[in-house]
Computed example of a mutant assay.
Amino acid sequence: MKHDLLQLIKNSSSDNYSSQCIENIFSLYENVQYSHGIDSLIEIIYKWFNKNYNIKDFKSTFYNLEIDYNQVLFQKGNDFYLDNLTCKTFIIEVHYYKNLVIAINADNENDFAKIENDSIILSSMFFLLNPIIKDFIIQKELLQNSLKDHITGFYNRKYLDECLRNSQLANCNDKSTAFFMIEVDRFKSVIDEFDYEIGDKVLIELAKVIKSIIPPEATCIKLTGYEMLVLINNINEQRAYEIAKDIISKFANSEVLVNFYTGQTLKKTACVGISIYPEHSSSKVQVIKYADIALQEAKNIGRSTPLVYKKEIESSITLF
């Protein structure tokens, strides 16, 4: 690809088309350097394809082959299959098992023919952009890791604080959103009887149970040492209560391996407090507080208890 780029630069001195291509590529290169992150960078690339190749259907996906994970970073236009006859893909290797795939789908055969004819030019362009794309993806991963709990994989308290500060918590503006405050019953006894490693295993098991029941778009946050907050959009109180019961039931039947050699296992239970935004309050901070109040009252009632916040149970308990 480096050779192709150098050859294109060499040809630009005598060939008008090559000269125009070089101008377009370096114009794009200059623009992406002023982007604010990988998301805005990819949007700039999309606009470039739209302007130069009339591309309306565009998708960029990040793949982590090591853990079989993929995430769509940016998409415009209609969805399409990568094996479409008018689809062209470009793979940017970020790491030996991490790739960014940019896929474009032409409206017609003529537009696709132009893309195919310029395939060397486009490959040269991505060769030039590769270091910038790598840096932005690494920055994004570092930021995401700083906002994640390393035990459960859930977001951490820092993420919650950032979202509350920027009013971006779970995109729940003007939507009915259920807030679940979840805590393992008598978690401290696990630490006292065993150790922190077994305690972590219990939290990991609870996180697995939660993820297996809630919708994939739900937001999960680990707050304190053993308290978790889950947000689910577009849900009413009755459905929220059913989900809480499902989490409690499945977790109560789960086993955590304590001793590999003896086969000893441990079973624990959990309580769930529920509050609904904006039904209980238009303040998200207050709704979180209400979910915590409901949780504390559920724990007072007994193990494996789900409870929806009611004004009658309000106490002086505060989360913040």
Rank of each mutant, 00 (worst) to 15 (best):
C163H: 09
T177W: 04
K201I: 03
D174P: 07
K211H: 14
E183G: 15
I151V: 15
K175R: 15
S146H: 11
H150C: 03
L160R: 06
K158L: 10
L203V: 03
Y196C: 11
N166D: 10
E193P: 08
N166V: 05
G153S: 11
D149S: 13
K148E: 11
C220L: 11
P216G: 03
F187K: 03
N166M: 09
Y226S: 10
E197H: 07
G153F: 01
F154I: 03
E183Q: 11
L206Q: 00
N156E: 03
L142G: 11
H150G: 10
L160I: 11
K188N: 04
A218L: 07
F154R: 10
I235G: 10
I204D: 05
M181P: 02
C220P: 02
K208F: 01
F194K: 06
V190E: 01
K158W: 04
F187H: 07
C220A: 04
E217P: 06
I221H: 02
P215H: 08
E205F: 00
F194Q: 07
L203C: 01
N156G: 12
G199A: 01
C220H: 11
F154E: 08
G225A: 02
R186H: 13
V202L: 02
F180K: 08
S176W: 00
E193S: 13
F187W: 05
A170L: 12
I235R: 03
K222D: 08
F179D: 07
P215R: 14
I198S: 02
C172L: 15
E162D: 09
F154P: 12
P216Y: 15
F179H: 09
E227V: 10
M228V: 07
